[in-house]
């Protein structure tokens, strides 16, 4: 498998999963940081870096994963459009069979 080509085509999915994994690690580390610290000021610092930062990474990763899926759909639709324009046979819907009309 060509890793560099795979990374080029799947960069959004790879980055998305990477950010989600990193976000999960941040949240877990924040939990341990908060539970180990007796000082409220230090706990708030952990909540900001690990908690809010982790949530940010999870959200950004999920957005990238969704974008990767949308890109896949684009590629699929582009391929269907190319095939249609190349004259691939198309099954006609029953309603249009009753009232045929070329466009």
């Amino acid at each position: 498998m060509d890793i560099s080509r795979w990374l080029r085509t799947e960069w959004d999915r790879v980055l998305g999963f990477g950010l989600i994994g990193l976000g999960a690690v941040f949240v877990v580390l924040a939990y341990f940081g908060v539970s180990d610290s007796p000082y409220l000021a230090q706990q708030l610092s952990f909540i900001t870096s690990g908690g809010i930062g982790g949530l940010f990474l999870l959200g950004a990763g999920a957005t990238l994963l969704h974008t990767a899926d949308v890109h896949d759909e684009w590629r699929k639709l582009d391929r269907i459009e190319r095939a249609l324009r190349a004259g691939e046979p198309v099954p006609m819907p029953s309603t249009s069979l009753e009232q045929p009309g070329p466009r």
Partner: peptide
């Protein structure tokens, strides 16, 4: 665009 390429309305 794909709907435009279909041979039915």
């Amino acid at each position: 665009r794909l709907e435009d390429a279909l041979p039915f309305p």
